[in-house]
Amino acid sequence: MSPYPPQLAELVEEFASITDRNERVEALIEIADRFDEARVPADIAVKPYAEENHVQYCESDAYVWAVDNPDGTLSFYFDVLNPQGLSAMAMSVVLSEHLSGAPLEQVSKLDTELVFKLFGREVSMGKGQGLMGIIAMVRGAALDRLSKRN
């Protein structure tokens, strides 16, 4: 059984079927092109952003916000200050589209292996570190809310 929420599991399955590197890259660029939809709105945060939202080790200067929904789930918003940070933007869009509103239990179990499932094994350590940092922030927010609930 997939550890991911259904929509994310579907996306991961789609990427698993991609064997051509260029096709994978094009798919990720298409996702990154939707970054404006995942970007944090001004009523949640404006620059300069708080350090607590800053993703550790991310060379693209990514930021993550988790906003509580009335049903107890979270909505996730992002910013990536480096305009060259396309991979960070793609990861942000994936997490925004597929984890906002998902059960916290599932979000809290998100693993960093997702980076390789989407980007492939060849992503450099520096790049991977930043992408995993974004995941860690999202998962951390879910764990935080779950701990307060119990």
Binding site: E26, L28, I29, Q84, L86, S87, K127
Partner: peptide
């Protein structure tokens, strides 16, 4: 580049890509 998404997303006209891993 380090980021494999950058060249396909837009590059200097006429430039080819040489990828460090491949």
């Amino acid at each position: 580049n380090e980021d494999p998404l950058l060249y396909p997303s837009g590059h200097v006209p006429g430039a080819v890509q040489i990828d460090w891993t491949h």
